[in-house]
Design a protein around this nucleic acid. Structure first.
Lengths: 236, 236
DNA sequence: CGGACTTTGTCCGAAACCGTACAGGGGCCA
DNA sequence: TGGCCCCTGTACGGTTTCGGACAAAGTCCG
C-alpha cells in the first residue's frame, strides 16, 4: 500500500498536523468504510483503533443500561477514540456510526507511539479534546434549558456541519433517541421548523432550507462549541 | 519556602503521581485559599494557574451569556484548569468556587514544562480528563432523562464525595442554579428527600442521613463517572 | 431590641413533555 | 399486484416543570 499523503485525506485533524507528525502517522493509517449503525467503540472494552473520519457521522453515547443519550458528535473534523489520547484504552461511552462514510483508522499502539514522540501532535489532538469537552458542555446546556424545537435545530446544524450536504438522512425515531425525547415530540418540532420554512422534511430525509435562521432558532445552544473548534484548529 | 512533600498535600492526583513527577511539580506548587464564589477561571481569558484542590468545591459552568448550567464538579480528587493539559490557555467555561477550601496552584508555564518532560504525568492527568468527560456525559444524561428529585440526589452525593462531610453548606437557590431549574423546584424536591429520611435540611445546610438510599434514588445517573475515576486513578 | 436582608415555604395558571395508542402512507419485495 | 414493514401524523390524559408572586421564618448587625 502506498503511504498516504496529506492531500489524500479529508480529515481536518490530519490536515492540521505538521508534516513531520503526519509522516509519523501515515504508515499506520488505513482507510476503512464506516457502515450505518456500526459500533466503533464498545462500552468498557479495549479500544483497538482510533478513527479519523473523512465522511459520515459518529455519535458518542452515554449508555447506562437503561437510557441512552447522545453526548457528542464527531465527523471529518474530529477523532473517535479520545480515551486513547488520555492514557486509557476504554470508556463507558459508545461510538456508533450514524451516517455511513469512510475513516482513516490507526491502531491504538501506533497512535500511542506517535503521541509519545511528538509534543506538537499531542497539542493538536489535545485541542480537539478541549473542543469536544465544550461540545458536551453545550449539550448539557441545550438539554437542560431548551425546548425540543431548539435542541432539534442545534442537532440538525451540527449534523449538517459534519455531512456537508443539505439533505440529511434522518428518521424521526432516530433523532428522538439522540435527543433523548419521544418520537412524536420530534415530529411536532419538525412541523414547526418546516412551517417556518427553515427545513423541509420528507420520509427519512431532512433538507436544510435556511441555515441562518435555523441557527437563530437554536439560539446560544449552537455556536460556542463550533467557535471553540475554529479558534483551536481553524485555518490550519 | 520549604519544598512540599507528597504527604503534605491532600489532592488525590498529586498523590497518584510518581515520586519523580512530584518532585518536578513540587517547587512550583503554592498553597492558596479558595474563597467562596471566587472565580478561578474566567471565560475566554488566559488561565494563569492550574489548581489542585485539597479542600472545597469548584464548579465548571457553561455560561453562554443567557443561561448558566453546571457541567462538572471538581474537588480534592481533581484538577481545575484542564485546558492547560490540552494545549490551550483558555476556555469558554467558568470555574467557580462553591465551597471554600484550599488548593495547590501552579503556574501554567511550569505545568506545561512538567507535562512536556514526563509521559507518566501526562498519563495521570489525562486519565483525570477522561473521568471528567464521563462526568459531563453523566450530567447530560441526568439533565435529559431524570426528575429534579433524582438530579438533586446525584448532585448531593457528588458534593458529599468532594467535601467529605455529612453537613453540606448549600442553599436552595444555589442548587437551583447548578441544576438549571427553578428555586421552588428544589424546595419541593428536598422535601421529598427529607420525607424519605434520606437527608435533613436546615437553613443553608443539607445533612446526608442515608447515603445508600440516596444513591438508589439517584439511580444510574450516579455511579458511572465515579467508577471511571476509581478505575483510572483509584488506589494509587 | 429592631430593622434589613437572606432563605425558605407555598400557591397559581400555563406550558412543555411524557407514555401510549392507533391510523394512514411510502417503499420494498415476492 | 398484493402484502408487509417501517416511517410519519395525530390524539388523549396525566405528570412535570415553568414563571411569577408573596408570605413566613431565620440571621445578622447596628
Amino acid at each position: 500500500m502506498p503511504t498516504l499523503r496529506p492531500s489524500d485525506c479529508r480529515n481536518r485533524l490530519l490536515a492540521a498536523v505538521t508534516a513531520e507528525d503526519f509522516s509519523r502517522l501515515a504508515p499506520h493509517l488505513e482507510r476503512v468504510p464506516l457502515a450505518f449503525r456500526q459500533v466503533l467503540i464498545e462500552a468498557d472494552r479495549p479500544i483497538p483503533h482510533a478513527f479519523f473520519p473523512e465522511e459520515g457521522l459518529v455519535s458518542l453515547i452515554a449508555d447506562t443500561g437503561e437510557g441512552r443519550v447522545e453526548v457528542g458528535l464527531t465527523g471529518f473534523e474530529g477523532l473517535v477514540g479520545v480515551p486513547l489520547l488520555l492514557g486509557t484504552d476504554r470508556t463507558p461511552h459508545v461510538a456508533l456510526v450514524q451516517a455511513e462514510g469512510t475513516a482513516l483508522r490507526i491502531e491504538a499502539a501506533a497512535l500511542g507511539d506517535a503521541l509519545a514522540a511528538s509534543a506538537s501532535l499531542r497539542s493538536v489532538l489535545g485541542r480537539y479534546v478541549q473542543s469536544l469537552i465544550v461540545q458536551v458542555g453545550q449539550t448539557v446546556y441545550a438539554n437542560t434549558d431548551h425546548t425540543i424545537e431548539t435542541r432539534l435545530a442545534r442537532w440538525i446544524l451540527m449534523t449538517q456541519d459534519r455531512l456537508r450536504r443539505d439533505d440529511l438522512p434522518l428518521t424521526h425515531d432516530f433523532m428522538a433517541t439522540m435527543l433523548g425525547v419521544r418520537r412524536p415530540g420530534v415530529t411536532t418540532a419538525l412541523h414547526i421548523l418546516e412551517g417556518a420554512r427553515l427545513i423541509q422534511a420528507r420520509r427519512g430525509c431532512i433538507t436544510v432550507l435556511d441555515r441562518t435562521r435555523l441557527a437563530e432558532c437554536a439560539g446560544d445552544s449552537y455556536g460556542p462549541a463550533e467557535a471553540e473548534y475554529e479558534r483551536l484548529l481553524g485555518r490550519a
